[in-house]
Simulated scan of single mutants.
Amino acid sequence: MWEQRVEIKGPYHFELALDRLANDPLNHVDIPERTVKVPIYEPEPEVAIVKAVGTVEEPVFIISGRHAETKANVIKQIYHIFQWNIGLHAISDHFYQTSLKSIFETHRGTPIVQDFSLYSCLVKCIVHQQLNMKFAQTLTERFVHTFGFEMDGVWFYPSPEKTAELTVEVLRGLQFSQRKAEYLIGLSQLIASGEIRLTELAEKTDEDILNTLVKVRGVGPWTVQNFLLFGLGRANLFPKADIGIQNAIKKLFQLDAKPTHDEMDDFSREWEPYLSYASLYLWRSIETKD
């Protein structure tokens, strides 16, 4: 076993990050212990443990793992997943001068936490399309529990190679729709064959990624925006078609009806270049009783 102490610049509210992670039943989160177990997919599967030992204003973490030879890689991935290289202080200061001041004060230091792998992010995006959250999570759990694997109490998504070999009928047995099963298998086949290389795609611009992925059957702009935000951590994404964001804006600004896209454009101009954080905090504002 190895351990590494990490100090970052505050604010960084790890408990609020864990609270969001705990919404996904596949995540291994212990909020009282301020701990999360993270599946590391590359180069070989292993589990890292991240524990907070500091405060919101002075964040300190202990990362631990089993294999000393992969320590550097694990730490690099943890930094990316939890966005420890992003200074939230400057972002908070920006929003304190905008119409989102109140929710940024309430949820101060909430980071954008990335999905644990690019492939699992795309899988979730496809599964969650046009489903309510509860059933989408149930369907994702069934998929992972049936075709993925467990290590140290943590579930790993199956590889794209394994999913590519599945049949539509098998996924239909888990209550996937015909089309959703076809979409998931088709995407996985493109990744498994190397036609789509996610690590290379991650180096491209938002526009290039959009143009590449929307050519895939079953992948539309909403899926790509979520992939850019929660897979790659791009800072300036604002999915206007998202019902949650529409509801949050309606509530915050006491509108009689959900905002139109033009109204959302008007509201969001002052939030740039951090629209992804505006999106996150708007979601957060309707996820809690605050």
Rank of each mutant, 00 (worst) to 15 (best):
A72M: 12
A72I: 14
A72K: 15
N73G: 14
N73W: 03
I75R: 04
I75P: 09
K76R: 14
K76M: 06
K76T: 11
Q77G: 10
Q77V: 10
Q77E: 15
Q77H: 14
Q77A: 05
I78L: 03
I78Y: 03
I78Q: 02
I78H: 02
I78E: 03
I78V: 13
Y79C: 02
H80Q: 13
H80F: 12
H80S: 10
I81L: 04
I81D: 00
Q83A: 03
Q83D: 02
W84G: 09
W84N: 02
W84P: 01
I86S: 02
G87H: 09
G87K: 10
G87D: 11
G87A: 08
L88S: 04
L88F: 05
H89S: 12
A90P: 04
I91F: 00
I91Y: 04
I91H: 03
S92N: 08
S92G: 08
D93H: 11
D93R: 10
D93G: 07
D93A: 06
H94M: 06
H94R: 05
F95E: 04
Y96I: 09
Y96A: 00
Y96S: 04
Q97T: 10
T98F: 01
S99Q: 09
S99K: 13
S99R: 12
S99V: 06
L100M: 03
L100G: 04
K101I: 02
S102A: 09
E105Q: 07
T106V: 06
T106Q: 06
H107P: 01
R108D: 01
R108A: 01
G109L: 00
G109H: 01
G109Y: 01
G109V: 00
T110H: 00
P111Y: 00
I112Q: 02
I112A: 03
I112Y: 01
V113I: 02
V113K: 00
Q114G: 04
Q114E: 01
Q114A: 08
Q114N: 05
Q114Y: 09
D115A: 09
D115S: 11
D115F: 05
F116V: 10
F116Q: 04
S117F: 02
Y119N: 09
Y119V: 12
S120G: 10
S120C: 07
S120A: 09
S120V: 13
S120Q: 11
C121N: 11
C121R: 06
C121E: 06
L122T: 10
L122N: 11
V123Q: 01
V123K: 00
V123T: 04
V123R: 00
V123E: 03
V123W: 00
K124T: 11
K124Y: 03
C125M: 08
C125V: 04
C125L: 05
V127G: 10
V127Q: 12
V127D: 08
V127A: 07
H128Y: 14
H128L: 09
H128K: 11
Q129L: 03
Q129N: 07
Q129K: 05
Q129H: 03
Q129I: 06
Q130R: 13
Q130D: 08
Q130I: 14
L131E: 11
N132P: 13
M133T: 15
M133C: 14
M133A: 15
K134A: 15
K134M: 14
K134I: 15
K134N: 15
F135E: 11
F135D: 11
F135T: 15
Q137F: 14
Q137E: 15
T138G: 07
T138D: 08
T138R: 13
L139R: 08
L139A: 13
T140P: 13
E141L: 12
E141V: 12
E141Q: 15
R142Q: 14
R142W: 12
F143A: 08
V144H: 07
V144L: 02
